[in-house]
Design a protein around this nucleic acid. Structure first.
Lengths: 153, 153
DNA sequence: TATTGTTATACTCTATAACTATA
DNA sequence: TATAGTTATAGAGTATAACAATA
């Protein structure tokens, strides 16, 4: 007969239940990719959130803080210091919005354009480096399924 | 000929580039699932991290803080308040580790067992509720691919 | 009256250094 | 000498309320 010890202890941790949960795995996977992102983007002095903001300005010249706030799920007050920082580093400039006197349009400077040209190249290479265990087809499937999770109808 | 405005502005934001990046999508998907998790687990007064800790204690009676720290990637100092809180709420108890005088083994109380029985049932139902756009087979594929991303060899 | 951008502020999360007691 | 648990503390990240200027 098996003997149950009076006070049990653990030799090797059983994580199988947590590993059956999507939320747990999604968070672990996201952190794992972001870890590589942080390392590779450090040369540009860009955190993931800075890269997201800069990338949206790159592909949407004249975008406003309000539009960034909506697109990236970042609260407006938390964007202020971020945008100020990017402006102070000479990567973006603010110009009055042509049709709305309350808003400011955000634009890349020449320096910002050059940095983002290289940073987006790094980000694309990073796709493979951060998921070396995935095949090209698995990577494509994963992207599609992740979008199905958070895209709201 | 097309006319480029002197100061461009944005009507609808183009997010296609960001949506081509795994890290961006993984983070958005994780946050989307965790949002549902927060709502459903509020009745048990458990945050995601509390649930993870409680679940590991459930399936590993006598687990130590050090083992929790390693398994969940939580730094030891940040576990102290967490474990104290769970003990104060009467969900877990600490007992001396049978083979290591420095360590304390963590165990569920009767109340903790009952709460986790219900909480894990809620967590399992939540799999489907938080990803209504996925089929059963897609959910299974997503889980497998997420694990392939963060499982280190 | 509603919205954009802003200030001030608070709360949570994460990280580091240093101590104690045991191994 | 190294490790488990702890304290204190600092820095990010995220959240709310309230205001000025403009719509």
């Amino acid at each position: 007969m098996d003997v149950v010890p009076q006070v049990p202890y653990v030799d090797s941790v059983d994580t199988r239940y947590l590993e059956s949960l999507l939320g747990y795995n999604a968070r672990r996977a996201a952190l794992s990719i972001i870890e590589v992102f942080l390392q590779r983007m450090a040369v540009y002095d860009l955190r993931p959130v800075d890269f997201s903001v800069m990338s949206l300005i790159t592909h949407n010249p004249g975008i406003t803080s309000k539009q960034l706030s909506n697109s990236l799920n970042i609260l407006a007050p938390n964007l202020v210091a971020m945008v100020n920082g990017l402006e102070k580093k000479g990567m973006i400039s603010r110009r009055p919005h042509p049709h709305d006197g309350r808003a400011m349009g955000l634009h890349l400077t020449d320096s910002g354009i050059e940095i983002m040209r290289r940073a987006e190249k790094t980000a694309s290479k990073l796709e493979i480096e951060s998921t070396p265990n995935l095949s090209t087809s698995e990577r494509k499937t994963l992207l599609r399924l992740l979008q199905k999770v958070y895209f709201k109808p």
